[in-house]
């Protein structure tokens, strides 16, 4: 590569690198630094406290509750999300269906709607005394009394998982469709000549070849899932009720740092989220690569 080309390359990536430095790396480093202070805007304190915030984090029940909830909600939506997205992708890519484009658009549409709007809508639909679901179920005689769906831990988590799935499975389906369409047609044709049926063609050829796409979607879903915030935040007004079952890690960090103004501890909490996310991502990446090997 000529020096001129290299210079051009550097020129082109400079805006991105600057953005990364200013908006990602520096804030990250600053967060790390202030995590060693007791900076509290409400109390007017700001002094170096060493590892105190991290000791507090490790003994903070809410951190573990939020971690458990976040992983649970993510796990509840990841399986149906990837499964149904993959099914849709296969149908879109390999079957002759009328109105494919329409369905792709419809499935992707929830992803374009603001999360907060979706959360408000979900809260209204699942409302206790006058929610649409309760009214419908009572009208057709399934329920005698309205059920407080958002007032019980398991159903509340299920609703958030469902809403997250509904918002994002269309995006995953589009990604998988692209992956399947990139599988060389000659491989499939050769398999047909060899007498492979549709099921064998999918599991022996298509699935292994789209594994990088699946890995990418899985990892981005994992990272996004561990940063779950808007939907439970709006549904519970930042409280994580009922019984803290919708308290997620980022929501708790947001309350500590930006509502009670404990910037020092909030930063330590953010670093805790970073470590958890990094560990989960590294573990998942390793598992996926191991299978590829």
């Amino acid at each position: 590569m000529t020096r001129k080309k290299v210079n051009f390359g550097i020129l082109f990536v400079t805006p991105f690198l600057l953005g990364l430095l200013v908006f990602r790396l520096l804030p990250f480093l600053y967060t790390f630094v202030i995590s060693f202070t007791n900076w509290n805007l409400m109390m007017g304190e700001k002094s170096f406290t060493g590892l105190d915030n991290y000791k507090r984090l490790l003994s903070d029940k809410n951190f573990y509750i939020a971690l458990r909830n976040t992983v649970k909600i993510w796990a509840m939506n990841i399986v149906p999300r990837l499964g149904i997205a993959l099914l849709c992708a296969v149908l879109f890519a390999q079957c002759r269906l009328r109105g494919k484009s329409f369905f792709k658009m419809v499935f992707y549409f929830p992803n374009l709607v603001n999360s907060a709007t979706v959360a408000v809508l979900a809260a209204m639909i699942m409302g206790w005394q006058s929610g649409v679901v309760n009214r419908f179920l009572m009208q057709i005689g399934i329920l005698e009394e309205p059920v407080y769906w958002l007032g019980q831990a398991s159903s509340a988590q299920g609703i958030v998982a469902f809403v997250t799935w509904w918002m994002w499975f269309g995006y995953s389906a589009i990604m998988f469709t692209t992956g399947i369409l990139n599988v060389p047609a000659s491989y499939i044709e050769a398999a047909i000549v060899d007498g492979a049926n549709a099921w064998q063609r999918f599991w022996r050829i298509t699935f292994p070849l789209i594994r990088p796409t699946i890995a990418y979607v899985f990892l981005t879903t994992l990272i996004g899932g561990l940063q779950n915030f808007e939907i439970p935040r709006v549904i519970t007004d930042g409280l994580g009720a009922p019984d803290k079952s919708l308290l997620t890690m980022v929501m708790q960090m947001h309350t500590i740092a930006f509502k009670s103004m404990q910037y020092g501890y909030g930063s330590a909490f953010a670093m805790g989220i970073f470590v958890v996310t990094a560990v989960f991502a590294a573990f998942s990446y390793r598992m996926i690569n191991k299978k590829e090997e």
């Binding site: 407080y148 007032g151 019980q152 831990a153 409280l239 009720a241 009922p242 019984d243």
Partner: peptide, 12 residues
């Protein structure tokens, strides 16, 4: 309010 509700609906 959240604690009152948890008690009122029987969660706690």
């Amino acid at each position: 309010l959240a604690a009152m509700e948890a008690y009122a609906v029987g969660n706690l």
